[in-house]
């Protein structure tokens, strides 16, 4: 067990916090988007930097990825990656309530990414008496080929990250996407401190 591993209690607590946040976020999103949004039970695991691409790659061929950094008090910070497959994106403008000719495809997925990320993380943050700030979302690439290239060229300054993967489904628009939160080493320690405080309070 290394310093970044979560104990069983910590893992359960984080899972519970995320579950509650997902429930509230999906409720808010449903109201705003005027349709049901399902969030599938998340997976929480550690990922090594050299395996990051593989874990994103899985069954994806042509994909768009939007990245948005986030940070709260107590040193909780990381990066959210929103992963889209092109066949899912036909009716995005419709879903967002914009006229299709009002904004480009890039702008649509950037806008949606920002909404999904910030809504979820705001609710999550409020559960741990925290508040999040965000960087502007950026389209890393319109297809995964270049995203892998982009990531491969980086020598990361982290070896290990906590990875939380949540799938969003909007059945009325037959739309799916994945949100992957990546929290690097030092921030894992910080989040463990917060979880321990919550566990003590119970």
């Amino acid at each position: 067990m290394n310093a970044f591993d979560l104990t069983e209690d910590q893992q359960d607590c984080l899972q519970e916090l995320i579950n509650v946040a997902m429930g509230q976020a999906s409720d808010q999103l449903a109201r705003y988007l005027d349709t049901f949004v399902y969030l599938k039970v998340p997976s929480i695991e550690q990922v090594k930097s050299e395996h990051l691409i593989d874990t994103l790659n899985q069954d994806l061929k042509e994909t768009a990825v939007v990245s948005q950094g986030f940070f709260g008090y107590e040193g909780i910070r990381g990066e959210a990656l929103l992963i889209y497959q092109p066949q899912d994106s036909n009716r995005l403008a419709d879903l967002l309530g914009y006229e299709a000719d009002e904004l480009t495809f890039d702008e649509q997925i950037i806008d949606l990414s920002s909404i999904l990320t910030t809504t979820f993380l705001n609710v999550f943050a409020s559960q741990i008496d925290n508040q999040m700030s965000y960087s502007a979302p950026r389209l890393l690439s319109a297809n995964l080929g270049t995203v892998s290239e982009h990531l491969q060229q980086q020598s990361f300054n982290w070896d290990l990250a906590l990875k939380v993967r949540i799938s969003y489904q909007v059945t009325d628009y037959s739309f799916n996407c994945d949100m992957v939160l990546l929290i690097p080493e030092q921030a894992i320690i910080n989040i463990k401190t917060v979880i321990d405080r919550i566990l003590e309070e119970f």
């Binding site: 808010q28 967002l96 309530g97 950037i110 909404i115 809504t119 700030s133 965000y134 502007a136 389209l139």
Partner: peptide, 21 residues
């Protein structure tokens, strides 16, 4: 108006970058 409605309703920040507009 739609952009700002997401800010008001979801209480989250929103962005608009030069690369898109």
């Amino acid at each position: 108006e739609r952009k700002l409605s997401s800010v008001i309703q979801l209480k989250t920040q929103s962005f608009c970058g030069w690369e898109q507009r």
